[in-house]
Design a protein around this nucleic acid. Structure first.
Length: 667
DNA sequence: TCCCTAACTTAGTAACGAAAGT
DNA sequence: ACTTTCGTTACTAAGTTAGGGA
């Protein structure tokens, strides 16, 4: 348990740091560069992350551009001099770095793509549509008011959506049922409409049982049948799961069109239960290049539109009927276009690192401004920076769940405590954020912030906006003036990454073995997840698995007690006998005790780790906020295999970073 | 300035499937 | 061999931001 306490101590130190003493690290190092590049970042004078695969794959595609996209024009010759990413002598690295610094003073003469152009060539096979509805067998009945009723195909299909969710809590919710029933009736024939007038008289249980039996049957399928399905899926993936973008064969993220069903939404969503309609080819806009093979629509159908817009990255889009928003088919995170964007995101965050001090001083000054708008802006920015809150756009009432971010905070979401638990000027936050995840935090703030908040709340109702002179647009415009490319969300990225780097420095013990170091990594990761409020529902089996683990620990403890007793008697025995044999026995018993102690420790650490993770999700920060180069560098520094930190998918997504970062990388 | 929309990132959960226990 | 546990993947909702037009 002591490890847990250590962690909490470190964490609170981190929190303390966040509260006032902004500790900035020294300047970042440049990273080694390889020949094959992403398009260069306008702010970076050509520092470019590399591509990993440089060999053509089975289909003859190159991961990196070969002929048609010219490599960036280098300001100097000896093109390949720093093209040996691994195992270079220190002097070579130093030399390379020096040369690179010189290079960076010379601007690149040519961009790979002109401003806003995302690709030159794009070819794909179009989307995969949801399988058509298969009517229920005759013997599966639907009952209305206790009597069997045969539904029309359309009405039946929608009924099955409800039947499949019967076990779910939300089919009991008033709004869900109301929305569902309204939309369901739209699909009914006029006779059905006149008969079925009340949802509570509908009996879906037989249908529900049928689907459960189907699921069961699927589980019981023979190996061969399962294999067949697997192969079919692979065929589909091979055929539709990839596209060609500028000489690269790239994986598509979501090539399957979302099937029809009932909209759930998260939290208390006013539209829950509405029918998400089936998407037809006639709804689909195809985007590809003019000189590519345009995917044909399914026989007897037409696309809504085929366009050739190389200023966007999507391949397919359609308009969804619940919110009327557009959905897209885009590329996988491992693709060039996503990786490059990801890399740029972290580079922007690193630029923020260079000027964050100035910005912090600025907003502190602004707390004193004569202008209300400026004060509000400054306090909001302080929250965004210190607490990693999201920007908080305004939302249309009645269209979505009632959630807020920083700029949309309402008076009812905070409580001011001039003094609380021995701390002065405490702000208590309690609101629902993105995905209706609760944000609850008690934070001591500076006096000026506190006084400002009191001012902002004067003469307001609980449901009034806290920052009534502010919105995300005003805030982001201001940020843009402070630093090119700066927006509210950059603070989240910056603070997450810098926290990871700092926590890794503090928590990693050089003498630890690999599992202990990985535990430290997870804790650093966890500190970030807590900062960003990344939560999850405790796993359904959490309590049970925790109890299992506890009983294992108890068993181990007993075992330890036994071993200790045996050691004691062996010692007593040895004292009497004073011979070699009994001495040896003592030694081996000692070892046994030690071994069991270790095992017990391990189990306890595991329990702690799991308990700490109960409601915290690490994956979101890992995937979206932590500069992967920090993790890669850490792994290299401590000899941790990268597979221990990133699984296969993650390694693919972060391929650029794995290849780019050396052990001395500084965020 | 406001308002709206398109495009893109970030988010949690359910389903799946492999590995670990029994 | 069967069950449980656990990591991974699929899915799609819910944010942010830029930019255009009134």
């Amino acid at each position: 348990m002591s490890t847990l306490n250590d962690f909490l101590l470190v964490l609170s130190a981190e929190v303390q740091r966040t509260l006032g003493l902004w500790d900035l690290r020294k300047k970042t190092h440049s990273q080694t560069r390889r020949r094959v590049c992403f398009a260069s970042d306008p702010f970076l004078n050509g520092e470019t992350p590399p591509r990993i695969k440089d060999e053509p794959d089975d289909d003859g595609f190159y991961a990196s551009p070969k002929e048609d996209s010219k490599p960036l024009k280098r300001p100097r010759e000896d093109d390949d001099a720093d093209y040996k990413p691994k195992k270079i002598k220190t002097e070579d690295i130093k030399k390379a770095k020096k040369r690179k610094q010189e290079e960076e003073e010379v601007m690149w003469e040519e961009e790979r793509y002109p401003e806003g152009i995302k690709w030159k060539f794009l070819e794909h096979k179009g989307p995969v549509f949801a399988p058509p509805y298969e009517p229920l067998p005759e013997n599966v009945k639907f009952y209305y008011d206790g009597k069997v009723m045969k539904l029309s195909t359309k009405a039946e299909e929608v009924a099955t959506f409800f039947a499949k969710m019967l076990d779910h809590e939300y089919t009991t919710k008033e709004i869900f049922r109301k929305n569902f029933f309204k939309d369901w009736r739209k699909e009914m024939t006029s006779e059905e409409k006149s008969t079925i007038t009340s949802l509570s008289k509908c009996d879906f249980t037989h249908m529900s049982q049928y689907f459960k039996a189907q699921t069961e049957a699927r589980k019981q399928m023979s190996k061969e049948e399962k294999q067949k399905i697997k192969e079919e899926n692979e065929r589909l993936l091979k055929e539709y799961g990839y596209c060609v973008m500028d000489n690269h064969k790239e994986r598509i993220a979501n090539f399957k069109i979302e099937p029809p069903g009932l909209f759930r939404g998260r939290g208390n969503h006013p539209k829950m239960g509405m029918l998400k309609r089936r998407i037809m080819p006639e709804d689909i806009i195809i985007n590809c290049s003019k000189d590519s093979k345009v995917p044909p629509p399914p026989p007897g159908h037409k696309w809504k539109e085929v366009r050739h817009d190389n200023k966007v990255t999507w391949l397919v889009s359609w308009t969804e009927n619940i919110q009327g928003s557009i959905k897209y088919i885009m590329l996988n995170p491992s693709s060039r276009i996503k990786g490059e964007k990801d890399w740029q995101k972290y580079e922007t965050a690193r630029r923020l690192k260079k000027c964050v001090d100035k910005i912090r001083n600025q907003y502190r000054e602004d707390w004193k401004s004569k202008e209300m708008k400026v004060r509000q802006r400054a306090v909001a920015l302080y929250f965004i920076d210190k607490l990693a809150l999201r920007a908080g756009n305004e939302k249309e009432e009645g269209e979505t769940a009632d959630t807020v971010g920083c700029c949309s905070l309402r008076v009812e979401h905070i409580k001011l405590h001039p003094e609380l638990d021995g701390q002065e000027y405490v702000v208590e936050f309690d609101f629902l954020g993105k995905d209706s995840i609760r944000y609850y935090n008690k934070v001591p703030v500076e006096k000026r912030v506190f006084k400002n908040l009191q001012l902002f709340m004067e003469n307001k109702q609980p449901e009034d906006d806290l920052f009534d002179r502010l919105n995300t647009s005003i805030l982001n415009k201001h940020l843009q003036d402070l630093m090119e490319g700066l927006t509210a969300k950059v603070f989240r990225t910056y603070n997450a990454s810098i926290t990871l780097q700092q926590q890794l420095k503090e928590l990693t013990n050089p003498d630890d073995n690999i599992p202990a170091k990985i535990l430290s990594y997870n804790r650093a990761n966890r500190a970030v997840a807590i900062l960003c409020n990344h939560q999850r529902a405790p796993p359904k089996t959490f309590e049970k698995s925790m109890m299992n683990l506890q009983s294992k620990i108890d068993a181990k403890k007993e075992q330890l007690a036994d071993a200790r007793r045996e050691l004691k008697s062996a010692k007593a025995d040895a004292k009497v006998r004073r011979d070699e044999k009994s001495k040896k026995a003592v030694e081996s018993k000692k070892k046994a005790v030690q071994r069991i102690e270790e095992q017990l420790m391990k189990l306890e650490v595991q329990a702690t780790d799991r308990e700490e993770n109960k409601q915290i999700a690490l994956s979101t920060s890992k995937l979206n906020y932590l500069d992967p180069r920090i993790s890669v560098a850490w792994c290299k520094k401590w000899g941790i295999p990268i597979e221990k930190i990133y699984n296969k998918t993650q390694r693919e997504k972060f391929a650029w970073a794995i290849d780019m970062a050396e052990e001395d990388y500084e965020f």
